[in-house]
Design a binder for these strands. Sequence first.
DNA 1: GAGGATTGAATCGCTTACGATACAAATGTA
DNA 2: TACATTTGTATCGTAAGCGATTCAATCCTC
Lengths: 152, 152
Amino acid sequence: MKTDGTALYLENQLCFPLYAASRLTTKIYTPLLKEFDLTYPQYLVLLVLWQHGNQTVNEICHRLLLESNTVTPLLKRLEEKKLLQRKRSDKDERVVQISLTKEGEALKQHALSIPDKLINAFADETIDETEIRNLQKTLFKLIDIMNKKLLP
Amino acid sequence: MKTDGTALYLENQLCFPLYAASRLTTKIYTPLLKEFDLTYPQYLVLLVLWQHGNQTVNEICHRLLLESNTVTPLLKRLEEKKLLQRKRSDKDERVVQISLTKEGEALKQHALSIPDKLINAFADETIDETEIRNLQKTLFKLIDIMNKKLLP
DNA sequence: GAGGATTGAATCGCTTACGATACAAATGTA
DNA sequence: TACATTTGTATCGTAAGCGATTCAATCCTC
């Protein structure tokens, strides 16, 4: 064990840059999503539904790695915005099925412009495409490892 | 612009893995920090103070890339725990100086074991050391770019 | 088929996060 | 020296996040 304290320096940690980068990306998204009256987590829920179609609460939780106590209120807010519907399953009364409304489905066409807007925002930056792909790959690997560690 | 929607897939985004990895790392830290009755953001504040000594609220905000409306209540909670003191500067009444108490300073020695505990938790995982360093480097680069974008 | 274990969603309480804003202290400028 | 501007911190309101727990529906085991 290092006892000089350098192991505790912010620059030597992995968690801090993850934490900061995550918050900053969300902050970059905010003005883009505001046009659609969405928050970033709400946008993530819609991404799941656009990509995978109707989902149960549980499926959304697993795909986003969130707990039901986070997702439930999130879904209620999206329901209030008329973007989706919540309905108990007939087969299993415990399950709540989430389905997009017409409006929620239609929003996808507008959202398609978001990735390009982000790319344009960074057009003047010299970020290596490969570096970003590697970053993404390592992150998914890390997520996988941590997720397994955290399973009951 | 891609119109097939694949650009909206979770797997093709950078923001989502950042967001998920950040939350999962925090979750990994939680049981370790619980021994010290600390949350992860509270731990970050202490890291700054251990590393840089007495700081103003503003300095802490800048080092952690957080807003004052997040940091102020955080500092109040740490003050309640007797880990630090808040005191208005004499020279400039607007400035609040944060200093560690004896207890806060002493906690550092115990916290030194945290990085090793994390490493041990992942000892059986084949995470390439270089890959982690690269990840860290890319993250700091990204943070730098985004931070500049977001400045007023 | 009774009775305990499990599961899916939700409730509660607490702690972040942050946009918008307030407010006093300090600074700049006419 | 008045007065507008800037700066540092804090307040308010809202939305996440999550641990702990609840509760009903379902499953399992005998």
